[in-house]
């Protein structure tokens, strides 16, 4: 009889890291579909580019490190990173943007630190921030939601058109498609008040609804993940509440110069950040209290950077900055262990 001897416990919940990641991928589908619907086939093409290059880079890194490729690719973490980057870059960005992005995300932001579980920053956001700083033109060229583009109604340009845009990447062609995002418009008002902008700007009048719908799609996916216990409510809720609260105060004080809370939450990438980026377990705080602090930090930073910063959206920088603070947050939010009077804090043994 060959009985095995091992340490308890002898049963485990049938959840796995890869299972968690698969759920995340599933939950991203509505958002990706919404993006495709409003911004054209470009999103799907970017997804394909990022996936292919991301997995290739991951496999390369694993091979160099002498790790079993199939097992580590099977954890789907590279897939999630690729999807996150794909939905963050403009749908019409040229081919190399996605490839360079994945190169940075997988090799520099992740594998150099020791692979899954060891990266201090969210890889997709590192890549996004680097691309944004290095290639501001390509990275800010969002086309207008297609609900606007034709007066005859809904029409997405043919897939061939998107393909040629991305692979051939002529800038004139691009110009024809691009416009500022709603948040951009609301910030660079040229002396007008926000209300005036809402009344005058075509993008805002007709495009806002598309952005709202997109946010709703991300929100749905996020709720599904909380329901599935992939992550707890702490981070997203604290981001949303903090951002809403701070922007509400600002809006209440000076409605003509500040964006209202609802649009803060729904016009940009707030929902994507709250549910899919900030909840990345590896680079966020670990305890529930820590996650609340972490989320509050992100919410506050999003508001500050959006209002006074220079970049169209603030999500990437906010998340990265808070990633930086995560170890410290963890240190100061340690739970009080059973049977101890106080949480174990301070330099004892550190």
């Amino acid at each position: 009889m060959s009985l095995i001897r091992m340490s308890s416990p002898h049963v485990t919940r049938s959840n796995t890291s890869s299972g968690v990641m698969q759920l995340v991928i599933l939950a991203m589908i509505p958002g990706i579909l919404a993006l495709t619907l409003f911004f054209g086939w470009g999103t799907l093409i970017q997804v394909a580019i990022c996936l292919a290059s991301g997995l290739a880079f991951e496999a390369l890194a694993l091979k160099m490190r002498g790790l079993p490729i199939s097992r580590y690719l099977g954890d789907y973490s590279a897939t999630v990173t690729a999807l996150l980057l794909a939905v963050s870059i403009p749908p019409s960005a040229p081919l190399w943007i996605g490839i360079v992005g994945m190169f940075v995300a997988i090799l520099f932001a992740k594998q150099v630190y020791g692979g899954i579980g060891n990266n201090p920053f969210n890889p997709a956001m590192v890549a996004y921030a680097l691309l944004l700083v290095s290639f501001p033109v390509q990275m800010t060229s969002w086309n207008l939601p297609y609900v606007l583009s034709g007066s005859e109604g809904w029409s997405i340009p043919a897939i061939s058109e998107s393909l040629s845009l991305i692979f051939a990447g002529s800038s004139q062609m691009m110009d024809a498609y691009t416009g500022a995002t709603p948040l951009d418009i609301l910030r660079n008002r040229d002396g007008f008040t926000t209300e005036e902008m809402w009344r005058s700007n075509q993008t805002l009048i007709e495009g806002a609804a598309a952005y709202h719908a997109l946010s709703a799609a991300w929100f749905m996916g996020g709720i599904y993940l909380i329901y599935k216990k992939v992550f707890t409510w702490h981070t997203p809720v604290s981001i949303l509440v903090t951002l809403g609260f701070v922007s509400a105060i600002a809006y209440g004080v000076d409605p003509s110069n500040f964006v209202d809370p609802f649009n803060h939450l729904t016009l940009g990438a707030t929902m994507l950040a709250a549910f899919f980026i900030a909840t990345d377990p590896v680079s966020s705080a670990t305890s529930n209290r820590g996650r609340i602090v972490f989320g509050m930090g992100i919410g506050l930073l999003i508001f500050i950077i959006r209002t006074w910063g220079n970049y169209p959206d603030a999500v990437a920088f906010s998340v990265l900055l808070m990633n930086l603070a995560a170890p410290m947050i963890d240190h100061y939010t340690q739970p009080r262990s059973y049977g101890h009077k106080r949480a174990r804090l301070g330099p004892k043994g550190e």
């Binding site: 091992m6 049963v11 890291s17 968690v20 377990p281 670990t286 739970p335 059973y338």
Partner: peptide
Amino acid sequence: EMPEAPAAQPCIRCGMCEQACPAQLLPQ
């Protein structure tokens, strides 16, 4: 019923262990 545990993967710091620990430790 009690399959052999799969090979351990790296900790992803998901914090699930911390949520479950009755002694309120930081298992990870």
